[in-house]
Amino acid sequence: MLLVQVFTSSANNQNIKPTLFEISEYAKILELKQKLEPITAIPLYQIKIFTSDKSVTDKEVISDILREMSLKDPRADAAFNVFDNKTFVGFVRFHRQVLQNGKAVDSLYYVTPDSRSSSSSAVSGLPKKRALELENPAAGDSTMPVFSQTDRLGTDEGDGFKCESSSSMEEEQPSCSTGMAAPQCIDRTKDCCQQQNCGKPDNRPPYARTMPENRRYGLVVSNLDSCEEVDSEALMSHIFELFESCSIKALHFSDCISMAKFCSNLLIVCVDDETAEWVVNAVDTLCPPHSCMPFIKFFDLMRCTFVLPLVRPGEPLCSIFSLMEKQNPDLVTDKWSVVNRTPLDPCDDNGDLVTDLCPNELIELFIDEDSKDLITQQCSKIVYFCWHLKVNFEC
Rank of each mutant, 00 (worst) to 15 (best):
V307C: 14
C386W: 04
Q195T: 08
C256N: 03
I47P: 02
D370R: 15
A76N: 10
S245M: 11
V391E: 09
A104F: 10
T40R: 04
N214Q: 08
L235Q: 03
G351D: 07
K35P: 00
T87V: 11
P74M: 02
V61N: 00
Y45V: 03
V280K: 15
D284E: 12
T87R: 06
L308Y: 02
F243V: 12
L134Q: 14
P201C: 06
L224E: 11
A181I: 07
E171P: 00
P183F: 01
W278H: 14
N101P: 00
M69G: 00
D106T: 02
L134T: 04
F243R: 09
P343F: 04
S10G: 13
N197R: 13
M293R: 09
D300M: 08
C193K: 01
S10Q: 12
M180L: 09
C263P: 05
C246T: 09
C193L: 05
Q97M: 06
S165V: 10
N197K: 14
M69C: 02
D73P: 03
P289E: 06
P18Y: 05
P206E: 01
D348R: 12
D352V: 10
E37Q: 08
V98T: 01
V89D: 00
Q194S: 07
I39P: 06
H252S: 11
H252Q: 12
M69I: 02
D202M: 07
T150P: 01
T8G: 04
H238S: 14
D231V: 11
A208T: 03
I382F: 11
V82R: 09
A78N: 08
